[in-house]
Amino acid sequence: MEDLYRHAHKLREVNPLVHCLTNQVVMQTTANVLLAAGASPAMLDAPEDAAAFAKNSSAVLVNTGTPHAAKYVASREAIRGAREAGVPWVLDPIGAGAPNAVGDFCSSILADKPDVISGNASEIVALAGMGDTARGVDATIDVDDALDAAISLAARTGGVVAVTGARDLTVSAGRSTWLTSGVPMLQQVIGTGCSLGALCAAYASLDMDPHDAVVTAHAHLGAAAQIAAETAHGPGSFAVAWLDAIAAVTPERMRELTSVEETR
């Protein structure tokens, strides 16, 4: 895993521009996480500018939290621009398992072949058409229960599918990686999961294997969470310490604090 984690330095050297169409609740958190990790965020969701901006970005994130009609249009335009320019794009299907129009929208853009799909177990299962197990935007099943759904989506899109949980799962054609990292307190701070989707986009823009890029993004935030938990007294102090740790964590610490199991 030495070569994998060394790419954490590469992100800061390249400073990719990530075009984020994301949840309004987490824009500031997501932007701060990208900056701390070494990327540049752009929170642009105007339909008239989305395609052109996507073409000139390093990667695009489509996060379906806080959906509305204009955002759906902007997301489609950004995806179109990304595909035309060969820019990788990431789908974070927030709320895909809930009984609303988000699931239909997410299903419709699967035809545009996201390079990465990153979500919780319930979202991944719902997106694969294998059930509806969400409670709002929260997962109600374990990551292990989403393995078949992740494999199905990876085969359908030709991309990488990540499932977040107590152990994170990353799946691509013929390959599955289980990563143990992070701490439970991540679930008590808003925007940690959404920020992960954005960091997946940042790493996906680098000249590295896309599967490894997604695993590294998870390891980066998970290792930082463990460092933050060492000094945090609660969710508030954890959020601040986590951001500091994202900026400071080294590949050596990432290797020390995470555990990887790979199958093919």
Rank of each mutant, 00 (worst) to 15 (best):
T133K: 05
E13F: 12
P41C: 13
M130K: 14
A46T: 08
G119C: 04
R167S: 15
L179D: 00
G129R: 11
A146T: 11
G86P: 09
E230T: 15
A126C: 07
R76C: 01
G234I: 09
V137T: 10
D244S: 12
V33S: 04
D144A: 13
L11S: 07
T29D: 14
V137H: 00
L153W: 00
R156V: 05
G103P: 10
L206M: 02
Y5Q: 05
V62Y: 00
A173I: 06
A126H: 05
D45P: 01
L35W: 11
L91R: 10
W242I: 02
A154R: 10
Y203G: 03
P88D: 05
V116L: 06
V102I: 14
A146Q: 11
A50C: 02
L91I: 10
A50Q: 01
V14F: 09
F105C: 11
H211L: 04
E256N: 06
N32R: 10
K10P: 00
V90S: 06
D144M: 04
C106I: 11
D45I: 03
A121R: 01
L44P: 00
D148V: 15
V143I: 12
M43R: 12
P235G: 03
G234A: 08
G191W: 04
T164P: 01
N56L: 06
L11Y: 07
M185D: 04
A155K: 07
E123H: 03
A8R: 09
K113A: 10
G136S: 06
A134H: 02
N15H: 15
G103K: 04
S40G: 05
A166P: 04
E256M: 05
A247Q: 13
H218F: 07
E230W: 08
G174N: 08
L206R: 00
A128S: 06
T177S: 14
M185C: 01
V73L: 11
A50D: 02
V183W: 00
I94L: 10
D207P: 03
R255Y: 13
T30W: 00
V183G: 03
V183S: 00
L257H: 07
S152T: 14
C20L: 10
A39L: 05
V183T: 15
A241P: 04
A162R: 07
R135D: 07
A173E: 15
D45A: 10
A173F: 12
S195H: 04
D142G: 12
N56I: 01
L4D: 04
H19E: 09
H9Y: 15
S58V: 06
V160C: 06
G158K: 06
T177M: 14
S152L: 13
V183H: 05
G159T: 06
L127Y: 01
N63E: 05
E261D: 15
G222D: 05
V163H: 08
D138C: 14
A121W: 00
A217P: 13
S205G: 02
S108R: 07
M43Y: 03
V33I: 14
S118D: 07
M27S: 11
L147E: 08
G97W: 01
S40R: 10
H233V: 12
A155N: 10
D115M: 05
D168E: 11
M43E: 08
I79F: 09
L153N: 00
M1L: 08
Q188E: 15
A229T: 06
I190Q: 13
L21T: 02
A70T: 12
V33L: 15
A149D: 11
T250N: 09
S75L: 08
A201I: 09
T216H: 11
T180Y: 13
Q24T: 02
A70C: 05
A50F: 03
P47Y: 12
A46K: 10
